[in-house]
Design a protein around this nucleic acid. Structure first.
Lengths: 234, 234
DNA sequence: AACACAAGAATTTTCGAAAATATGCCTTGC
DNA sequence: GCAAGGCATATTTTCGAAAATTCTTGTGTT
């Protein structure tokens, strides 16, 4: 694995997990110190992330973390539902024994991690297993393109979910995520396509709704850093 | 526009138009001569294209043009249908006067270019207008993510279409592309969602079928350069 | 006071060379 | 004759500095 690869994974993680916050300018000198490498591998990583819409590049004005907005959350959620319900349908049609085993295994692994809740440091592991579970459902869809889009949208949505997960109050959402995951796995393994896709849709819409309701405080802003308000004062 | 941007557009074009053929290794020294710039902007461009699946990168072994395969053509076609029928539906719901005008204008522009057929050099212009027409249909869908996926899949499919367009025999496909485009525009402007999406689906499936049938000769190989078969001879 | 302009500083982008790694060839040993 | 190992070459990857551009600050003019 080259330095550029490491840079890519590190920066991607830091953006998704919110350590590099939305709209933050990414100065080469700072990144170079932070990740302990020269400009070349960093710029290569940033160029990849630009294609994935996690960073924005402006010619001769460098890179910055892509902004967040309610509009994008809704667009990403709707797009996920479109692509994943289709992929889930295909998976249910094509899936073999190994696919089923993968789902059971991923669900169990996720449950185990949820049981260990409380420690903040484990949120990353929890997220990895959550991602693995949703991927396992679609794994047999036999469509590299749709899986690619799944990955893109998963990353896009994770950026909205993580900050809320970090506020311990996350369980007060009034819903039982694990029950939803189990029901989704059950319907899928039972090859009940309509039920499974309906549950998947509800699962994503509920999450988007919950995030929307909690996003009001300050992050709802759609426009990029408008200093106008503060600068003009007095 | 920076050198890296120019490199990105040039290489992307050359891959899509087939000047850089599938699986071809992209050596830095060659690219540097061909595009007349140093390694840095070239590598940045290649990293972007890697994210778009137009080039493949292997750590410490450089880049090569992404391979073509019947399987990918079918996957990309099915994915296009999924995403674009949805986006077209949304566009028909949301579209305003300017959207309608854009379609009429793009269709007319496409027709004009088709009329000028014969000159090979115009295929690029023809392709640009074809792309613009299909984009105009979806322009009002109000979903940046779906438009992004449209662009990705358009590029992926164009790689299969272009080589066939270049063989002058392309018109012998037994179908009238312009009639299909006109019918598609008519149904869309009439806000007949079901008819428009059905036409779009047929349009793409017919193209994929035609390409499939013509791909037999030598490009059908799915696996990347497997020397096994020839080496083991007898 | 507001604006235009210019010099200096900060930053991004690009280059050319050095370091790291892979590839091909040739020898050596069996 | 053939595989294993090692040297030379080719290639990718990374660095550090130079070039190009933007941003900031200060000055002068209206």
């Amino acid at each position: 694995m080259t330095l550029a690869d490491k840079a890519y994974h590190s920066i991607r993680n830091d953006i998704i997990r919110g350590e590099l916050s939305a709209d933050k300018p990414l100065r080469m000198a700072d990144l170079s110190k932070l990740y302990e490498m020269g400009f070349s591998p960093l710029r290569e990583a940033l160029n990849r992330l630009q294609s994935e819409r996690l960073v924005i590049a402006e010619a001769l004005r460098g890179f910055r973390v892509a902004p967040l907005s309610l509009a994008e959350l809704h667009d990403a959620t709707q797009s996920r539902i479109l692509i994943e319900t289709d992929a889930l349908r295909a998976s249910i049609n094509n899936g073999d024994d190994a696919w089923e085993a993968g789902i059971v295994s991923a669900l169990h692994s996720l449950k185990l991690q949820v049981a260990k809740k409380g420690k903040n440091a484990d949120i990353r592991e929890l997220e990895d297993r959550h991602h693995a579970f949703h991927l396992s459902l679609l794994a047999a869809c036999n469509s590299p393109w749709r899986l690619e889009f799944f990955e893109r949208l998963y990353a896009a949505c994770e950026r909205y979910r993580i900050p809320i997960l970090l506020e311990a109050a996350s369980h007060t959402s009034g819903r039982d995520m694990q029950a939803e995951h189990s029901a989704l796995a059950d319907a899928t393994l039972a090859r009940d396509t309509d039920k499974a896709t309906a549950l998947l849709q509800k699962h994503y819409m509920a999450t988007a709704e919950f995030i929307s309701s909690r996003m009001q405080p300050d992050e709802r802003r759609d426009d990029t850093q408008n200093n106008r308000g503060t600068a003009g004062g007095r």
